[in-house]
């Protein structure tokens, strides 16, 4: 298989399979989760300021009082790499073009140098967060295979994409093909791992906020 055949495979059948599994998995899991339901809370609702699903969606993005000082790496590193990933995925020109081809929506892109910078910062933040996870005994104890694995499948598309544009290690065509392949692996893994939080995040925050708001507790 030549470089171009490999690239064409990942752009064609590979992408087909990955998006198929991704859609199948995401729909399956979301429907399964949201149809679980809970018993209706028959107690009379209490009211408290700032207690609602909507409030919680936003509040959970902020650290609890004192937590930023106790766990700065988790918060700051976490913010940086999530924002970086969003910038790279949604504001990189080739990525917007892919989205446009898949769903028909498009918007202006950021300069490629800026995306390159975002990739470097994102990778640095991810490495720091990983080092923190390894160094802190409690975090390490709580980590399972899934944590290490999802870190790797998230990190690899950023690394290979950046290396492709910087012409590092392998010829561009091979690195680009590896980049697309790694993104496809991410798509396949996403619905069946904790990475599904990209979809369930706001729903579960809303749910928690609403359940607690009924009890008059702003969480």
């Amino acid at each position: 298989m030549t470089d171009l055949q490999f690239l064409t495979w990942v752009r064609g059948p590979g992408l087909n399979i990955a998006i198929g599994i991704f859609l199948l998995g995401v729909l399956w899991r979301l429907i399964e989760i949201y149809t679980l339901g809970r018993r209706k809370d028959l107690a009379a609702p209490r009211h408290a300021a700032g207690a609602s699903g909507f409030h919680t969606v936003f509040r959970r993005s902020l650290p609890l009082p004192g937590m930023l000082k106790r766990s700065p790496v988790s918060y700051i590193g976490g913010y940086i790499f999530h924002a970086g990933l969003a910038i790279i995925v949604f504001l990189g020109a080739p990525h917007i073009l892919l989205i446009k081809n898949l769903v028909g929506l498009s918007w202006p892109a950021l300069p490629s140098q800026f995306i390159g910078l975002a990739a470097v910062v994102t990778m640095a933040a991810m490495v720091v967060v990983l080092a923190d996870r390894i160094n802190k005994p409690v975090k390490r104890f709580l980590s399972t295979f899934e944590d290490w694995f999802t870190w790797a499948v998230t990190f690899l598309p950023v690394l290979t994409g950046w290396m492709a544009t910087q012409h590092l290690l392998l010829p561009y065509t091979q690195m680009l093909a590896l980049h697309i392949l790694s993104a496809e692996i991410l798509l396949v893994v996403l619905p069946f791992s904790k990475l599904l939080h990209g979809f369930t995040l706001f729903g579960s925050r809303w749910y928690n906020g609403k359940v607690n708001a009924h009890k008059g507790v702003p969480v």
Partner: peptide, 10 residues
């Protein structure tokens, strides 16, 4: 290059 090479089939 970043667009799908084939239309999505599945």
């Amino acid at each position: 290059l970043s667009a799908p090479a084939d239309p999505l089939k599945f």
